[in-house]
Amino acid sequence: MDIDWATIADGTGKVIVAGLLFGAGLPLLFSLGIRLWDIGSGGEHADGTVTAGKPAALYAAYAVFAVVAAAIVIGVLYITQKSIDHYLGIQLF
């Protein structure tokens, strides 16, 4: 058997880092956006109190959502760069 354990460990480490960064980091960012969106939109709460909307929080929420969306778009473009190059001849990265 000729198995390169170092390469496997290296690959595994990279997958874990990328997984945590994109697989847990982006959901975290997205939840922050949801929280800001909830604070920003005001209205009636579970305890019956009614608050006014907070535009600043709402805009911050939209900004966070935009960052998440951009990260996904860039990610997909990065993954499909070879196909884009193949079909359209555009080299993105």
């Binding site: 990279k14 997958v15 997984g19 697989g23």
Partner: peptide, 23 residues
């Protein structure tokens, strides 16, 4: 819903990056 999103985000991140990272 929040669990579903977290689960699929993890899947997407790992499936999409793993092949590029050699595994």
């Amino acid at each position: 819903a929040p669990q579903g999103m977290a689960a699929e985000a993890s899947s997407a991140a790992i499936i999409l990056t793993s092949s590029n990272l050699g595994m």
